[in-house]
Amino acid sequence: MIPLTHSLFVGALLFTLGAAVVLLRRELLFLLMGLEIMFNGAALSAVAAGQHWQGAEGQVLAIFLMAITTAELVVALILVWLAYQRFQAICVDDLVALRDGRSEDSP
């Protein structure tokens, strides 16, 4: 029998690794993969919690999670693709047109 904390910890580690990918990698696709890992860490936690409480809600959560993150991912992917198509943007560094300009002098 796996203690809840252990499985949650695995989920937390996955979540953290996903975050690490988002934070450390620059390629947009990697970022999306990082997000996937984060979501999966969460899903693991959900299922683990469901196991702990012995209810269906954990799994329901995981299923919703899959459906909804997929929807989100798809839209994000198409945007990444658009970015590549229009600007040949692969990395986050290629998308820095929107930013604070240098403040002009004002009273």
Partner: peptide, 20 residues
């Protein structure tokens, strides 16, 4: 990533969630 996801699937199964 696929490897990781598949491993996860196994974990789900082990945690009593065959459908997921």
């Amino acid at each position: 990533l696929i490897a990781s996801l598949l491993a996860l699937a196994l974990l789900f199964f082990l945690l009593g969630a065959p459908l997921v």
